[in-house]
């Protein structure tokens, strides 16, 4: 009995906090099921739930196409950031060259430059290269990230140098060392970085807003924004769209929940 009471005291706050965390998601789903004249009702379940808002969203904007664009853009961005970060980190930690410290310092400094500052020159260049309305145009300016380089440089610094030297003595080239020795041993930080980069790219708004001119070529954050206007927000439709937009991330979480929690623990919640 005493143990049960202690367990209850320990678990009760956690249960309350969990409910608090889950409530906004619950409210999003509930609101997505409400008709227009019930939107501001505070009932925990709609009086007459319907899928009208979902049908409206799918009719009003090409939601499936937008979700696919977003997935392709986020996956390609994450992959590119991991690859460029891996190569840069390997070069910075394994090769001694003049100015490596300065290079690393400059990469760290570039992390402090907001993307908005480089957005217009990037846009002008993307336009000249014919990359408007393309996934490549969305990905390339974000293909290298200082955060990725710094995270992987730190991870690689703690990697045993002897292993690499042994592989080199066995005649392995740098690419082989990287692929067959380093990568298999850095799976955890690579996965964490990939997950963070994917989520960050999934939430991207400003760059796609500038680069894409047609709704069919845009991403989900722009799609959600279409339900917010100066004449008021279409809450039901927006919550339905937000629910649909959450599903791929939820799926990703179900598959990779250990790595996601690990990545947040390592880097702090961003």
């Amino acid at each position: 009995m005493k143990a049960d009471t202690r367990r209850l005291v320990v678990h009760a706050p956690m249960i309350v906090l969990s409910l608090l965390a889950v409530f906004p998601v619950w409210w999003m789903v509930v609101t997505s099921l409400k008709p227009e004249n019930e939107i501001f009702s505070t009932r925990l379940w709609p009086a007459s739930p319907s899928l009208e808002n979902y049908a409206y969203v799918l009719d009003a904007i090409p939601m499936i196409r937008i979700l696919w664009n977003t997935f392709a853009m986020a996956a390609a961005t994450a992959l590119a950031q991991v690859l460029t970060g891996l190569c840069a980190a390997y070069a910075l930690t394994r090769w001694r060259f003049r100015g490596s410290g300065i290079a690393q310092g400059l990469i760290a400094l570039s992390w402090l430059v907001p993307f908005q500052l480089t957005m217009i020159p990037n846009y002008v260049l993307a336009t000249k290269l014919g990359m408007l309305n393309t996934i490549a145009g969305l990905v390339i300016p974000n293909a290298a990230a200082a955060f990725a380089v710094l995270v992987l440089t730190n991870a690689m610094r703690s990697f045993p140098k002897d292993l690499i030297d042994a592989a080199r003595m066995d005649g392995a080239g740098h690419l082989r060392v990287l692929c067959e020795v380093v990568v298999p041993n850095l799976r955890a930080p690579l996965a964490s970085l990939g997950v963070l980069a994917f989520i960050s790219a999934w939430n991207e708004y400003f760059w796609p807003l500038l680069l894409t001119r047609r709704i069919e070529d845009t991403v989900v954050q722009i799609g959600l924004q279409m339900f917010m206007t100066q004449e008021g927000n279409q809450w039901g439709a927006m919550m339905a769209a937000a629910t649909l937009a959450s599903l791929p991330i939820l799926l990703l979480y179900l598959v990779l929940h250990r790595q996601i929690i690990d990545s947040f623990m390592r880097s702090g919640i961003r």
Partner: peptide, 19 residues
């Protein structure tokens, strides 16, 4: 070309700059 009302001027400006 679609852009939200609070962003449309920036879009027009950016496109003029980009030719």
């Amino acid at each position: 070309v679609a852009a939200p009302s609070n962003e449309i001027l920036s879009r027009v400006q950016a496109d003029i700059v980009a030719g």
